[in-house]
Design a protein around this nucleic acid. Structure first.
Lengths: 124, 124
DNA sequence: GACTAAACGCAACTAGATTGCAAACACGAT
DNA sequence: ATCGTGTTTGCAATCTAGTTGCGTTTAGTC
């Protein structure tokens, strides 16, 4: 993957984020700097395919992207979306435990890679 | 809320489902029977507002609807989406335990109403 | 049976995601 | 340093699912 100006700007912007960013949020900042919507979009998709960022959909019909941390603890963390205000947050401080209920033989689930919680945030 | 032919058909179709249905899946069956896309759509939204069905977004940019069970155990259950084949499943047989990790003071999360898990299903 | 608000059916519209294509560019080879 | 080639960009168009406006029809009430 080549090192181009738009690509670098996108990555740089994402590194400054504390929660997943949407394509719209990124274009809002980067288009005025002379970059194209579609270019930003394709970069996000490419970076996601390359594994540098993860692409998540948290329930509001908007793709969000975030840089994948290097530390194993950061690599996978649950996300939270407020049903009321739409705020998106990462939840490194919450552990989610998944286990089959007693009595169930089989599950359709082979492997869980992502966890999304929805509900109300503190402010709502 | 009035009892109309489209509304009854929609509810009846949903009762036969074992997993949340999308608007597209429902129209696919009901439009050939003479019902309108928009009518079905509005019925789904209205039924969701009335609390008869729940409207969930599981990460593929498609709203899905399912009848809300009467039993308390059925009322709220986690959903699972396969990242590979897109299959959607309800997980009554899996219990999800959420707890703050030790050492965290506060959480942005006040209340969790919905849980979505993503990963790979048995067939993928 | 008449009345009225709710619901329908048709068609248009929106927002975000996605793609086609010709021009510009990064970067390894010469 | 220049060249050649496969990548990437920029612009504009397209797609999909969701959503809405409006005149007509209808369920439920009086």
């Amino acid at each position: 993957m080549r090192s181009t100006a738009p690509r670098i700007s996108v990555l740089e912007r994402m590194r400054r984020a504390s929660a997943p960013l949407s394509h719209a949020e990124i274009t809002e900042e980067l288009v005025p700097l002379g970059f194209d919507r579609a270019t930003i979009y394709r970069n996000l998709v490419d970076l996601a395919e390359a594994g540098l960022v993860s692409r998540v959909e948290l329930g509001d019909h908007v793709w969000r992207y975030e840089v994948r941390g290097t530390e194993s603890r950061e690599r996978e963390h649950p996300h939270f979306v407020c049903n009321d205000c739409g705020t998106v947050a990462c939840l490194p401080a919450v552990s989610v435990d998944i286990r089959p209920a007693p009595g169930s033989r089989h599950s359709v689930v082979a492997e869980v890679s992502d966890v999304v919680l929805k509900g109300l945030c503190e402010s709502c």
